[in-house]
Nucleic acid binder design. Structure first.
Lengths: 363, 363
DNA sequence: ATGTCATTGGAACACGTGTGCATCCAATGG
DNA sequence: CCATTGGATGCACACGTGTTCCAATGACAT
């Protein structure tokens, strides 16, 4: 219709200038049409949107972030997806971030032991709005740099002590308490323990809390073996425990994955009956814990609440920058299934002993 | 030492101008120091780097991407992390991307059935270098827009037929062929099948390929039930199959997750012996397939090769933009474990019947 | 002394956006 | 009829980087 010629769109994506030229308005007006709250006549707005549609224009978010000095990207640092609890966490986190208009940038370390420093550096270079760290460690030096740069850093599902950062985690200690009680109330008192890597906060809480409560109840951990939070580690540790202490009647694994390994060693390899001969209990409540082959009694981590907490901190006016060196804990809840002898439940705890495929929880 | 006053660093992150001022050089020289191949005296380079370190400066990647018109961000679209094959894929993909200097931006759909269009739109707004789609669908209209915008779009682990996009996937058909052969060679011929959702390419290949090869060998699928690629679905479908066809001696599940469900139904619920009474076979080779409780015979998807293929396409000079509407398939390999009767293996196939915890594969 | 070359500065432009400020126009009230 | 108001719009700057062109400087070889 109009004989107007755009100067030279070339092979470039359409910019707001192109839209402005086509709609015969200024570039500023185009910008106003795409940011709400601005004052623009409805007739011209329609003309601009039409032109934008025609040219396939959509605002360049990189330029917008550069200009507005605020990012809609959140760096999510992690390592190993092999831990079956990780997907659930990631699922909840990305969902919640998306609801807040934020998009996760995924930075993965090659190993759990690799420092997160390089990844944090990268995240800062992308000028992200925040950094969420799930499994790896970071140096105090680097954490401080984040806060100097006004980028909040939150440890999720992992408590970093004595660092100027926020931590959101499930209360491993109270969960371990409850597990000790369940074993004792069930009448199993010759107890072995399978731990994860030493040095991690989670491990020391799940280990120490269990020991403490058991001691308070008048019992003791007969022996412990070190796994590495993996199935194979749990399997090997269980074999080691049974060889050393033939009289064991319960095994507490600090992790569901290790509990599965222990169960297979106890049941399939040694032919013991569970829970009659030996009870087994884990920690996390990953999806497989509900599968018929395991039916594992465990502590469910309150993933939703942890994620909700994390995001709401980031969405505060101060974005959590005033909260440094603070720890938020959420209690998990006991899920009773078929690998322990039944005990009476408390509020919020779930009985899935009888469940088969009725009310099929997702997967 | 020097009485030089920086104009007003304020609370802002240091920019290249600040570094230039502190190092007493021009901004251009600073830029030269951070982009390699440029000619700069080693002494001044050192001075600049020192100043940068002092100010905690690192180049703003957003500004760089905006300027250079090339992105180091790749959008990775997915849905549901609950499928246990997803983490392995993600792990390999992020690792390979990182090696290429690319960072994944994670865009997750709420449901598998949700169209990817909105997410693709978002990815385009971020001006990503490429888009990798794993499970969800996209409209032809939106795919075309990607290629018009010179953004390559690759379907990974999913073949989208009749769309102007590239697909990289494992060869589900050849894998299904091999499974049919394994069952027949093992002497099991009264075979039931558990399928996933209808309509997906993967499902139709794993289903159709199996049917075809079985037919060529002179046999037929006695009956099939529909799961939904989940454990619960497989469990229910297996129950349905056994009720309908009591004489079954083998079950092929199009998915490991469904195979686990079927195994639990066959073994734990009905008390059958595997593989003596009923053989079970899956597809994917997720980590749990190697666990003692299952020891599942299955087809291992060549994740590494698929990911390598995907990334090398994106790193081609034309970034794969000339390859539209092309499909790259990679053959998987049989992993023989304890849920089928033993057959003779071919090249590249693996015998893990005897494996326990010797040579512990990761997890 | 002169040409050559490496090194650096200076200035400008581009990338694409948001926004404060000024301007313009129409409507309204006195 | 004029002053005022308020909404709609254009101008110019800023965000932080890479690049390019040109000039200047110094070192060095011939």
């Amino acid at each position: 219709m109009s004989s107007f010629e755009t100067p030279d769109p070339g092979n470039r994506r359409a910019s707001s200038a192109d839209v402005a030229a086509l709609a015969k308005v200024s570039r500023a007006t185009v910008s106003r049409c795409f940011s709400d709250g601005a004052t623009v006549r409805s007739e011209t707005r329609e003309r601009v949107l039409q032109a934008a549609r025609e040219l396939g224009y959509e605002p360049n978010l990189l330029a917008r972030m550069l200009n507005k000095q605020e990012s809609s990207i959140v760096a999510v640092l992690t390592s190993d997806f092999t831990n079956p609890f990780q997907p659930a966490l990631m699922e909840a986190l990305t969902g919640r971030l998306r609801a807040a208009g934020l998009t996760p940038l995924l930075l993965k370390a090659d190993s759990v032991f690799e420092s997160a420093d390089a990844l944090i550096q990268l995240a800062l270079s992308y000028r992200v709005a925040a950094i969420v760290v799930t499994v790896i460690n970071a140096s105090d030096r680097m954490i401080s740099r984040c806060f100097e740069a006004k980028v909040p850093l939150i440890f999720l599902n992992r408590v970093a002590e004595d660092t100027p950062a926020i931590s959101v985690c499930s209360n491993s200690r109270s969960g371990a308490f409850r597990i000790a009680e369940v074993l004792v109330e069930g009448g199993t008192t010759r107890i072995g323990m399978i731990t994860g890597q030493l040095g991690s906060w989670t491990n020391s809480m799940r280990r120490g809390g269990f020991r403490q409560r058991l001691d308070e109840l008048g019992y003791d951990v007969l022996g412990s073996a070190q796994g590495d939070f993996t199935y194979r580690g749990g399997y090997a540790a269980a074999v080691e425990l049974m060889d050393t202490l033939p009289s064991l009647d319960a095994i507490y694994a600090c992790n569901d994955a290790m509990a599965f390994g222990a169960l297979d060693a106890v049941r399939t390899l040694r032919g013991h009956r569970v829970p009659e001969n030996i009870a087994v209990v884990g920690f996390d409540d990953v999806p497989m814990a509900a599968w018929e082959a395991y039916r594992l009694t465990t502590i469910r981590q309150p993933v939703e609440r942890m994620v909700e907490d994390t995001c709401s901190i980031l969405l505060r006016p101060d974005r959590g920058l005033d909260l440094s060196r603070q720890v938020f804990l959420h209690d998990g809840s006991l899920i009773q299934r078929a690998t322990t002898r039944p005990v009476e439940l408390r509020d919020g705890e779930v009985d899935e002993r009888a469940v088969s495929q009725v009310a099929p929880r997702e997967m």
